[in-house]
Amino acid sequence: MATLREPVKIFIVQSLACFETPQQVVDAVKQEFNIEILRQQVALYDPTKATGKNLSKKLKDLFHKTRNDFKTNVFDIPLANKAVRLTELQKIYNDPKVNRILRTKLIRQVKDEMQGYELQLLDIQLKQLEIERIKTGDGDGADDPTPVKVTIQVVDASKDDAEYQPDTECASGEVSTTSE
């Protein structure tokens, strides 16, 4: 095994603390320092493994500090940012090769990401795509051209007495002929 200088040891410890596999670390050390090492040598620098029990206190402390920072600083990861995720989903949605079924799934995923923003608009688009898919016979439900009724109820939430009231017409499936 090659004798490693301090910067290489630190690089290995920090890489392992960030949950990289020994093989990923071997490849990174080769690329970064132009040194060939073995996975077994990398394992010596992981204090969470039995092979790393003899690691110096300085490197153990570095490992645990780096791991803690890595776990708590998720905002350093681009996909942890909602705007980045939504942008990526939009790019996929805009791809002309994407079929209706995938578009429907993408809309649902965006809806989940938004967690309450503009859900009504997304629900309308989702229903339109589902209706179009059923009409054209794509995917599940192709054999069942059951008509779909979409009812949107708007409540003015700015009023003090505003609260959800279920629409009995929608719940029963029957149309009321009496006037209120």
Rank of each mutant, 00 (worst) to 15 (best):
Q31W: 09
L89W: 00
E169W: 07
Y164M: 04
E163R: 09
Q153Y: 01
T178S: 12
T151K: 13
V42I: 00
V25A: 07
N94W: 06
T87V: 01
G137T: 01
K82F: 01
T178D: 13
Q120G: 15
N99F: 08
L79C: 04
K57N: 06
S158G: 07
A162Y: 09
K53I: 04
K9N: 06
V42F: 08
E88L: 15
D69H: 01
R85G: 08
L129W: 00
V110Q: 10
Q40W: 13
A28N: 08
T21E: 06
Q125P: 01
T151Q: 10
G52P: 06
D140R: 13
A2W: 09
V29K: 04
D95E: 09
P7D: 05
Q109V: 07
Y45E: 07
V154L: 13
A17C: 07
T146P: 00
L121S: 15
P147F: 07
V155S: 07
D140P: 15
K159R: 00
S56G: 00
A171I: 14
K111C: 12
K49P: 07
D123P: 12
M1P: 06
R85L: 10
L86I: 12
Q109A: 15
P22Q: 02
D143S: 12
D76G: 15
Q165Y: 07
L38G: 14
P22S: 00
G173S: 05
D156G: 06
T168I: 06
S56H: 04
P22D: 10
D143I: 02
P96Q: 02
A83F: 04
T151G: 12
A43E: 14
T177D: 12
D140H: 10
I101F: 05
C18I: 03
Y45T: 09
F19L: 09
Q125M: 15
L59E: 04
Q41S: 12
D61W: 10
L119R: 05
S158Y: 05
D123N: 15
Q125K: 13
P7N: 08
F63H: 07
S172P: 02
V154Y: 11
D95P: 00
F63D: 03
G141R: 00
E20V: 04
L59V: 10
L89G: 08
T66I: 00
T3R: 15
K127A: 15
E163S: 04
V155G: 05
K111G: 14
Q128R: 14
K97D: 14
Y164E: 02
S15D: 12
E180W: 04
I124K: 10
I92L: 11
V42C: 10
V8P: 06
Q14N: 13
V154S: 14
D123S: 11
I134N: 02
T72S: 01
V29R: 03
D167F: 01
G116T: 00
A171E: 15
K57R: 12
R5S: 15
A162P: 08
A162R: 08
T3I: 08
V155E: 04
S56M: 07
V74H: 06
A157V: 13
I134D: 09
E169S: 14
A50E: 14
L106R: 01
F75V: 03
G141I: 07
M1F: 03
D69Y: 01
E36Q: 12
D61G: 05
K149G: 08
L44R: 11
